[in-house]
Design a protein around this nucleic acid. Structure first.
Lengths: 251, 251
DNA sequence: CGTAACTTTGATTCAATTCAAAGCCCGTGG
DNA sequence: CCACGGGCTTTGAATTGAATCAAAGTTACG
């Protein structure tokens, strides 16, 4: 069974397979993976893909559209932990405790591939590449979260927003979209929430970047007109690991 | 081969096995795990267990002592991403790219168990419990990091420090140590770095908590004298997932 | 086409930082 | 054993980046 015929696009033909689990698999392995994937009907804007407490059954690969993930506190405050685009895998937060811990909400009409966890786990016992790829994806998420901690703790509002725009640009580019011209699917408020800033600050900064001729803003549409200047706004990047040799000497 | 005889303590007898990988394993499985673990000689204060760029070979279980993990940016700024105590597993950041991404540094004389990754991976192919436990530990780390994002973005200095102290208290308690009386192995500066605060702010807050008779501070020694009041300082907690049923209705 | 949600801009406030300066603790070496 | 010095901690005063408060525009969707 490879899912509902209406929505069947095979991993083999998926334009995002180079970003998704299949990247680590050979042809045969990809076919096995493809066999356990269930293609679901589209989700619409604001539909919840996962909710905290809901029993964990699957991981989800995003096929089209975009999602935000967020957690909430008992006073109703919400923290957006990430934005997700095609090729991204979501749901790893549910492995601990077998219940999803986050909301994952569609920001526009979106399609997903459901990867039933038990089948994935069983498959991974005889596919080392799959096993390692899953750990690798989670490791990447951990590293991104650590990098986010530095951004939130050490960077100014301007640097945070600069970093956010460059990050989006890179991710769109990896997906074959323009790196210099894209639509924000999230609101200013959501950007601010994720970056630890208020709406007003985000708005003011976008205006400022535009006045400085770094970007052009037209509602949701962002055009990066001076990429170098934008990168100049983001402060110092994470150390390249290549520095480790000199540091290694004192270990 | 079960490691150097000098430092051999078996998982079976380890007082932290209820927090560590063995928690998910039966007797036989634990023995297999025990066989691949290498016990190393102690690390001393400031020794580096991992360095960014160093080739990833192993995960490490902390047997005694304490560590901090941190990443650095090209301008030399450093961000402490976590503190680690006995039973904690570190090194997952290295799975992505096969190179460690963080520094992991001993904050005092400490002992570790090395878990060679290739052996662990091979073992996990025929031990589903081990396979799942590894994913679960990484998932827990992801959830902690997400919770950290909310703390950094939405909480005041007072709430952050309150949260930090309660978190330490809980972790010490899980490890069989006192939950109300403990030594900080980290400096005020390191606490501040992790929480996105300056040394001065951390110092002032500790003084304030003491004046309010919530804790008593004597250098590195903290005594929590009014646990309820301390918990009152930490702001609203993450939503308990039990709320999901009511929320689930609108999914 | 009306209305609710989102965005922008300005004025004011404030929590935490920065700057500054003592004081304290602990390990080390004479 | 005590004196010295470097790192850590505390406390105070001044500053500031971003938040908050306020209000007008704008967009888009039912």
């Amino acid at each position: 069974m490879s899912g509902q015929s209406n929505f069947s696009i095979r991993c083999q033909n998926c334009s995002f397979n180079h970003l998704c689990i299949p990247v680590a698999l050979n042809q045969t392995e990809m076919e096995s993976l493809d066999d356990i994937i269930e293609r679901k009907r589209p989700l619409h804007k604001n539909d919840q893909l996962t909710i905290p407490g809901q029993s964990f059954t699957s991981l989800f690969a995003i096929r089209s559209g975009s999602f935000k993930s967020y957690i909430t506190s008992s006073d109703g405050e919400q923290q957006i932990t990430g934005f997700h685009f095609p090729g991204d895998i979501v749901g790893f937060d549910g492995l601990h405790s077998q219940q999803y811990q986050s909301f994952t909400q569609a920001m526009e009409t979106s399609m997903i591939c459901e990867l039933p966890y038990e089948k994935l786990d069983e498959m991974s016992s005889h596919l080392p590449a799959l096993r390692k790829e899953m750990l690798k994806i989670m490791s990447t998420e951990i590293n991104q979260d650590h990098s986010m901690m530095m951004i939130l703790n050490k960077r100014t509002a301007e640097e945070r927003l600069g970093h956010f725009l460059v990050n989006l640009s890179d991710r769109f580019s990896q997906r074959g979209f323009s790196s210099t011209e894209f639509n924000l699917t999230m609101t200013r408020n959501e950007i601010g929430n994720h970056l630890g800033l208020t709406v007003e600050t985000v708005s003011r900064l976008l205006t400022r970047f535009q006045k400085e001729n770094i970007i052009s803003v037209d509602g949701k549409l962002i055009v990066i007109t001076d990429e170098a200047a934008l990168k100049g706004k983001i402060g110092q990047q994470l150390d390249d690991v290549s520095c480790s040799e000199k540091l290694g000497q004192r270990a």
